[in-house]
């Protein structure tokens, strides 16, 4: 069995356990009652754009918003490793 639960540190202050087999990274942030930014929740508006400081993510749907180096769109990705992000 491959590992699906990863440690995600958000804004340097919240540490969450995120199960990559259950919903998107954004949904995980919401489930942990963190304040989240989003509009479309489908990868095309860019409103959820966050900074990936370490780790890697996998996209569930092809993101259409521009992703600059070091950016991720948590509404359509899941962690692939432990992560540190700014949202």
């Amino acid at each position: 069995m491959t590992q699906s639960v990863f440690k995600v540190i958000v804004n340097g202050e919240h540490e969450l356990a995120v199960d990559a087999s259950e919903g998107t990274l954004l949904e995980a942030l919401e489930a942990h009652k963190l304040e989240v930014n989003y509009h479309c929740k489908s990868g095309f508006c860019g409103a959820c754009r966050s900074t990936l400081k370490s780790g890697s993510v996998r996209y569930l749907t092809d993101p259409l918003a521009y992703i600059r180096k070091g950016d991720i769109l948590p509404c359509c990705c899941v962690p692939e490793s432990d992560l540190e992000i700014d949202h």
Binding site: C40, C45, L64, A65, Y66
Partner: peptide
């Protein structure tokens, strides 16, 4: 309309970023 505008916005952001990067 808002859903459409988000697609439009993404296109102009792409143009600007494709240029500047």
């Amino acid at each position: 309309i808002a859903r459409d505008e988000n697609v439009h916005l993404t296109s102009t952001q792409h143009m600007i970023n494709l240029w500047q990067y």
